[in-house]
Structures are given as C-alpha cells and as structure tokens.
C-alpha cells in the first residue's frame, strides 16, 4: 500500500461512489416494483448522455441539433429518457410477465444489445470529450492534510458537484417514495402485487412509471459521469461496476444501493493506491471480488433481508 496516496484515494473513492450509487438506484427501483433486474440500465444511461450531448450541442463538431444551455438540454434528455423507459416496459417487458428469471434477464440483455446498436448507429462510436460541464474538469479545491501526498487532498470541483447532485437526487427519490401518493402506490406494489391491485392501484401503470423514473435516474447518473470522463458508447461498460453495488446493498434497499455504490467507489479508489501494479490494474474487478466475498459472508447483502424458504 502506498500510504500517502490513501487519503486522496478514500476521498475520491467516496465521491465517485456517489454516482455509482445513483446509477445502482435506478436498477433497484425497477427491481423493487417488478422484480426485473435491468441489465440494459447502462445503455439507457449512455442514451441519456448522448441525448443531452445532442441537445446541448457539441460546438467543435457541428453535430449538434440544438444549442440549448446544459440545464435545458438535461431536462429535454430526461423527458425522452422517461419516454423510452416507459415504452421499453410496455413493449418488451410486459409480455414477459410470469416468465422465468432467465427469460427476463435475457430480455434485458437483448434490449441492451438493441440499444447499443441504436446508439452506435445514431451517435457513432467515437468518444466525445467535449461534453458540456459547469466547471472545467481540472479545477479543484485544495485541502491541506498532513498525511496526504504533498500534504494536500485535491477535490475536483466536478466530482464534488457530481456527488452533491447524486445525493440530492437520492434524497429526492426517497422523499418521493415516502410522501407522494404515486410513490406510496409504488411501494405498495413492491410489497405485494395482489394486495396493491385489490386497493385500486393500477399495477401496470406503476411498472411503466418505475421504468420511466429509472430512465431519468439513468440519464442523470450518465450526465454526471460524462461530465468527468466524457461521452462515449463505452459508458455502458463503465456502469458494470454498479451491478455489484446493487447486490452489496441488498437488491431491494434504496439506501443500500447508495452505500453499496460508495463501497464500490472506495474499493476502486483503494486498489488504485496500492504499490503493486497488478492490484492497481484491478479497479474494474475490485467490486466483483468484493461482491464474491460478501456473498460468502452475508449472501443477502448488507441491507437485504434474510428469507427462510418455504415448501
């Protein structure tokens, strides 16, 4: 371990984890309402990124459709992402009701492939580094800290802003589920479909809605991610680290997703501070190794509930 690098790694790791958590949240939301694990979330995210990029305009390339300010571009992307989420649920997932787990997993994997092709076709395959961001990616706050490298911890402004927005988004979602009528209906559906139906909740509407919201959450996470690493079709694979975060948290817990995300960010940060090259190269698999360890210690995840099976 390179100890002087650890403080920076911890801080960056946690900040990165916020976005991973937000991305994980989108998957957990769908899972909670409909028990579908959406493997295409990464591609929804990439789609959201490119839509934003499209609306906001890429000044150098002339590929832009509109030259909207970032905020409006994001809003426009949200609307379309929600719509796409809604349509996906209606067209692809609804016919799958009652099918075995494998079929449903494969459906979202097939969907991911389809979206990948569509993204490649419409936006091209080359990465775009000119994603609009409120601050230049290099600006940072400098915090003096005696144990850190050069006695300073650097906080990149985009990263801090990203983390704050991710946390705000999460809080907003949790409040939505606690206090709004729709949110409560969605929670009731998550608990028990039959019961929800019997008290007059339209279960299909809730499914559609949760996919629409998941589309927005994905786009939001994607935009935050793209502000740091640019827009590219490979964003969908960057997102693969969000999957272990979900299981670490326990698959059905919203706060669990965030904590899982932070755990993943932290694990990735810490391996980066290692003095061994091999370990430093393991940022992409660190979350999965962590996941395997947790599976043996606490198979239901950190916040999941242990269920005793019945027969």
């Amino acid at each position: 371990m390179n100890w002087v690098l650890v403080p920076q790694a911890v801080v960056t790791g946690i900040l990165n984890g916020g976005v991973i958590g937000l991305i994980a949240l989108g998957v957990v939301m769908i899972y909670k309402s409909s028990e579908i694990f959406n493997f295409s979330q990464g591609h929804l995210l990439t789609l959201g990124v490119f839509l934003t990029w499209w609306f906001a305009g890429a000044k150098e390339t002339g590929d832009e459709l509109f030259n909207l300010p970032l905020v409006f571009a994001v809003l426009a992307a949200f609307i379309i992402a929600a719509l796409i989420g809604f349509i996906i649920e209606r067209v692809a997932l609804r016919p799958m009701a009652g099918q075995p787990l494998l079929s449903i997993i494969l459906m979202t994997l097939g969907l991911a492939q389809l979206l990948e092709g569509v993204i490649n076709l419409t936006f091209g395959v080359q990465p775009r580094s000119n994603f609009p961001a409120p601050f230049p990616a290099t600006e940072s706050f400098k915090i003096p800290f005696s144990l850190a490298f050069n006695e300073t911890i650097f906080l990149r402004k985009t990263l801090v802003a990203t983390f704050i927005v991710a946390m705000l988004g999460t809080a907003l979602l949790i409040l939505f589920f606690r206090f709004t009528r729709t949110g409560l209906a969605m929670r009731a559906t998550a608990e028990d479909h039959e019961l929800a139906r019997s008290i007059g909740i339209s279960v299909p509407r809730v499914f559609g809605l949760s996919w629409a919201i998941a589309g927005i959450v994905a786009a939001a996470g994607g935009v935050l991610l793209a502000m740091q690493i640019g827009a590219s079709p490979t964003l969908s694979t960057v997102v693969l680290v969000a999957f272990p975060a979900i299981l670490l948290g326990g698959l059905e817990s919203l706060p669990g997703a965030i904590i899982g995300g932070i755990a993943v960010g932290l694990a990735q940060g810490l391996v980066g501070a290692s003095s061994l090259v091999v370990i430093r190269n393991s940022a992409a698999i660190a979350p999965y190794v962590l996941l395997l360890i947790i599976m043996f210690i606490r198979p239901e995840g950190l916040f999941g509930q242990k269920r005793i099976e019945r027969i």
């Binding site: 692809a92 494969l106 459906m107 994997l109 097939g110 969907l111 991911a112 492939q113 389809l114 979206l115 990948e116 092709g117 569509v118 490649n120 076709l121 395959v125």
Partner: peptide, 14 residues
C-alpha cells in the same frame, strides 16, 4: 459496421 450486429441479435433474442 458496428451497429447491425447488436441490433439484429438483440431484436432476434427479444
């Protein structure tokens, strides 16, 4: 060159 393969496969699978 990169989009037809995933589109066709994804659609077929679905």
């Amino acid at each position: 060159l990169t989009s037809f393969r995933p589109i066709f496969f994804g659609l077929m699978l679905m």
